[in-house]
Simulated scan of single mutants.
Amino acid sequence: MHSFDDAISPAVAVAMLQGQGIKISERTLRERARELGACRVIGKAMFLLPVDIEAILEASKPVRRSASAPSASAWSEADSLALYQRLREPRKKRQAKLPD
């Protein structure tokens, strides 16, 4: 069970982050906390526990791409060849058909 002694408001969390040189708005922190479900809300009041702050920080890590797995392209060598051939064909002038 958690204690209210460790609870802080989003405003206090933002002030702590800004004290460390990390610029974030209270609104952004509140939105992110709600999005992750990493907050406690009673009525209109929102507060954060240390476990919530850890969840927000963990979710904020950038996703690392695997260097060994090449990205799959939907464009194939055959598609490239077909496009090349189409671009090399001489253009035909379109003639408007006149009604009979």
Rank of each mutant, 00 (worst) to 15 (best):
D52S: 06
D52F: 02
I53Y: 01
Q85T: 11
I42N: 09
V12K: 15
V63H: 05
A38K: 02
V14A: 07
V63R: 11
D6L: 06
V41T: 13
S76Q: 01
S76D: 03
A74M: 05
A11L: 12
R30I: 13
R64P: 07
D100R: 11
L87K: 14
V12N: 09
A82V: 14
Q20Y: 08
S60L: 00
A69V: 08
S3E: 05
S71R: 12
K23M: 09
A78Y: 02
A11Y: 04
E54L: 09
A33G: 06
L49V: 00
K23N: 14
K44Q: 12
V63G: 02
D100F: 07
A96Y: 07
G37P: 02
L36Q: 04
R34P: 01
E31W: 04
R94N: 10
A96V: 10
S80R: 15
R27Y: 07
A55Y: 01
L17D: 04
A74K: 07
D52E: 04
L87H: 10
T28D: 10
D100I: 08
L29M: 06
T28A: 14
L48R: 00
P90G: 08
Q95S: 10
K44A: 12
V51C: 09
L17Q: 05
G19I: 03
S68E: 11
S60M: 04
A67S: 10
V41S: 09
I56E: 06
A33T: 00
S60K: 01
I53D: 07
L29T: 04
E54N: 11
Q95Y: 11
A7Q: 02
P90I: 07
E77I: 07
L48G: 00
A55H: 05
D52W: 00
D79R: 04
I56C: 03
P10H: 00
A67M: 05
H2E: 10
E89N: 15
Y84C: 08
H2G: 10
S73I: 02
A74T: 09
R34M: 07
Q85N: 13
G43M: 03
E58K: 12
S73A: 02
L36K: 02
G19T: 03
D5S: 10
E89W: 08
V41L: 05
Q95A: 13
L81P: 02
